Simulated scan of single mutants.
Amino acid sequence: MDTELLKKGPVMSRETFSRFGGLWIDRMDCDAELARRTVAGTFPEEVSRLIQSFMRDGFVVIKSAVSKDLTVAIKSELEQHWRSSPPGAMIEHWTPQGEQIFVPPALQYRDGPTKLLDFHAFSETARQAIAAPKVVAFLSAIFDAKPKAFQSLTFWRGSQQAIHKDTAYVQVDGAPMKLAASWLALEDIHAGTGELEYYVGSHRAPDFLFAGEHKWLEAAPHEHDRFLASHHEDAAKYGFKRSSFLASEGDVLIWHADLAHGGSVITESNTRQSLVTHFTPEKENPPYALKGPINRMEVGGCQFISVARQ
């Protein structure tokens, strides 16, 4: 547990929907602020419409945000990455015994409950796709800053992960709500393949407080099951509709830090190849970036950082 980070804690706010603050789109007056910025011409009209949808639903879909040339190239690079990984490449894998392990990529793990970590650190092609112009334009607008990509996860099959909120696991130092994520379909997604699912509007539900005061799970790991159950209870209480994303190759879904989402149950044998990336405004950092050497890159107006692995 990062006790120093927990001691430091986030700045509390009651001007935002979450007591932990957030972006300008999370302020109680966000609708008026969007109207003001739209009238002032701060954003193109298309971006303003996307922001309005994002504030209401907790996500937006940008159709054909990434060209098929890029998605095909990424899949080719991923195949090589799995068969002959470069030094420092890692996956997160869960064994049949329920043990979480971190090992280099190998084909024996690809079909299992596995996440390929930080592919963006090894692939210029992946960075270009993550920094697709429409994605960067949207993130820059809600961040009021250049986006910083600091964690990516690549999936071969659906994760079947329980519905959850990223703010319990993905840390931004002192600012848990200054976070967004993108989900890029690397192929057409079919029902039954573990497609992404979510509760529409759930980003506005009350904060779940670990140990009665924290946003991050590490403050009280024993409360994890209660945390997961709370999303379904909130959906029933506030009327959040459960929905899913059957994407076409190249589509990107961007979700809010507190959108309740997960991977649906797999009933078909098809793959569900996808690339997930987590972002924060350029001046913010995940805790690891403050503690050790990191790699820094920039593509298309988006910063990229990753752990400097040997």
Rank of each mutant, 00 (worst) to 15 (best):
P176R: 02
S269N: 13
D26P: 05
T267W: 01
K215F: 07
V66F: 01
K75W: 07
A219I: 08
A236Y: 00
E268D: 13
I254T: 05
L253R: 01
I189L: 08
L107W: 11
Q108F: 01
S64Q: 15
K178V: 00
R127W: 05
K178H: 14
I163R: 10
G250R: 02
M1H: 12
E282H: 12
A65P: 02
L186P: 02
L184A: 09
L78M: 15
T167A: 02
R242P: 00
M90E: 11
S269F: 07
I189V: 14
W82N: 06
D111K: 13
L117H: 08
H203K: 10
Y109R: 05
I254S: 05
K75M: 13
L275K: 01
E124C: 00
G194E: 04
Q97T: 11
K291M: 13
G192L: 10
P87G: 03
P293R: 13
L70Q: 06
V307K: 11
E223P: 07
Q310P: 15
A229Y: 06
Q160G: 05
R14A: 07
K63E: 13
F245C: 08
C30A: 14
A65E: 02
G194M: 05
I305W: 00
S182I: 06
D234Y: 15
S13H: 10
P113H: 06
F138G: 04
A175Q: 11
G21K: 07
Q161R: 04
